[in-house]
Amino acid sequence: MRVETKESQALAIDVLRHGHADDPRPIIKREPIVQAIGVDQFKLLEIIPKVSDIEIHELLYIGDGERPKVERVKRRLKYSELTATAKLELPYAIEKIIVENEERFIEIFNKSVPISLKLHMLHLLPGIGKKLLSEVLDARQKSPFTSFDDIRTRIKSIPHPERMILDRILEEIKDPDVKYHLFTSR
C-alpha cells in the first residue's frame, strides 16, 4: 500500500564490530556492520558505519547528504539474514518507532479504506474482524481518533492498538509472501 522510496533514517538493531562471525577473512580485515531497520518503511538494512561507537536502538541518518556515523548502506536484508540479537531487538525497535510516531500510525485507524468488497484495510490488523471493524468505523465517523489512548478509551475491545500495528509490521517483515503491505515495502 506504500510507495517505495529510500529510507532516510534507521534504528540499529545489532552492531557487529568485527563483521560477520562466518566471514573467512582475518578479523583485522573485516569491516564492522550494523543491522538496522528503516524508520519509514521498515526495510531491514546492513550498514557500514564510519565510527565504532554505535549503540543498539540508536537512530542513524542514512539519507542523502552528510552522514556523521554512516559510511554507506551496503544492502537490504531478509528477515532470515538477521543475527539472533537483531531478531530479538526487532520488536523493541518497531515499538519505539510506533510510539515516537504515534500520529502516523493513528492514520490507519482514521483513513483506512476497503481493499475489496469483502476485505477492509483494518481487517489486516490482527484481531480485527467484522464486528470490531464496524465499531471502529462508527467511532471514527463521529470524530477522528487522536491517540492510542483515544482508541483504547472509545473502543474497549482494542486495549493495545500499538500492539496490533507491531504484530502486523512483524508479519509483513517475516513473511515474504504476505499479499498486502500496510506499513512495509516489498
Rank of each mutant, 00 (worst) to 15 (best):
L90E: 08
D22G: 07
R75S: 13
D150K: 05
K111N: 14
H160W: 08
S185G: 11
P161V: 04
L133M: 13
L59W: 08
I97T: 02
K142S: 02
I54V: 12
E171D: 15
R72H: 05
V34H: 08
I106F: 05
G129Q: 10
V113D: 10
P32H: 10
L77I: 09
G63V: 03
L77F: 06
T5L: 00
Y61E: 04
E103M: 13
I115S: 12
H18Y: 13
E172V: 09
L182H: 10
K174R: 00
S134K: 02
P161Q: 05
D167P: 04
K78E: 12
H123I: 07
E135V: 11
D167Y: 01
A84S: 12
P126F: 02
R154E: 05
V3D: 14
Y79W: 03
I173W: 02
E31H: 15
D150I: 00
L88Q: 12
T5G: 11
V73K: 01
E89R: 11
P114S: 12
E46L: 10
I48L: 01
G63C: 10
H20I: 10
Y92N: 11
L182E: 07
L182C: 13
Y79P: 02
K130I: 10
D177Y: 07
I33Q: 06
E171I: 14
L77P: 02
R104T: 13
S134G: 04
V3A: 15
Y79N: 06
L133W: 01
L166W: 00
L133P: 14
R67K: 15
E55G: 03
D177A: 09
R152D: 01
I28Q: 15
R76T: 08
P176S: 14
G19H: 00
L59V: 09
E55W: 08
K131D: 15
A93H: 04
E103V: 13
M1R: 00
D175T: 13
L170Q: 12
I173E: 01
Q141A: 01
I151L: 11
E55H: 09
